[in-house]
Design a protein around this nucleic acid. Sequence first.
DNA 1: TGACGGTATGTCTGTTCTGACATACTCTTG
DNA 2: CAAGAGTATGTCAGAACAGACATACCGTCA
Lengths: 108, 108
Amino acid sequence: MRASKQRKLTAKGWKIGDAKDFMALSASEEAYIKIRLKLADGLKARRSSRGITQTELASALRSSQSRVAKMEAGDPTVSLDLLVRSLLALGTSNRELAAMIAHSLRVT
Amino acid sequence: MRASKQRKLTAKGWKIGDAKDFMALSASEEAYIKIRLKLADGLKARRSSRGITQTELASALRSSQSRVAKMEAGDPTVSLDLLVRSLLALGTSNRELAAMIAHSLRVT
DNA sequence: TGACGGTATGTCTGTTCTGACATACTCTTG
DNA sequence: CAAGAGTATGTCAGAACAGACATACCGTCA
């Protein structure tokens, strides 16, 4: 991982590896984070293109505005589970979801 | 959701909706569960095709054999996060992961 | 049959994630 | 410059999930 990218991620609160890391994990670790960021972007795009507010989405999900904000910000306290469930609740199809993941290598 | 399928899932410990459900959630809820089951199958297939044991995979993941077993069984106490991280750790590419999700409508 | 390698299941304790709330920030619009 | 709508950020108590361990359940092979 390039240093500049690592800085960008750690700035968001991500922990990239640590002393007792398996070498083998770091690669998949990065892929995992990229997927999450891509889904976060997808969520934001979907919601705003629908013209609904975070608060509205939150109530449809039975969650809270703050959590929606964190989801879209790619906050590390938000799980993949929640991201995926939110996207699905927004009507995202499996194919669309799959596309996001397939293209997650391109997270800038 | 057909009653027979619902029975099959609830037998595994899944809770499908409940009294105070949003109608809108139940559909995506089902999609979500199907994705998880598909990934669970994928994990099992990948591991055994590599000829490694659950215990070996567990140690590579720094997890435990029991958790790997639960993952493969589609146990509801296993999160999507863990499933995805495990698949990635097994070397699954984003494209392959995406394919699993795209095809998750076909979980039998 | 017994022993063994692999897998499944149940349960424990500690960590992580959740929704909720408060509050601060950022735009508009008047 | 308010006032309001929308979004971001910090925190917390409770829920969900984690790894670990014990133990039960297969197969298979001697």
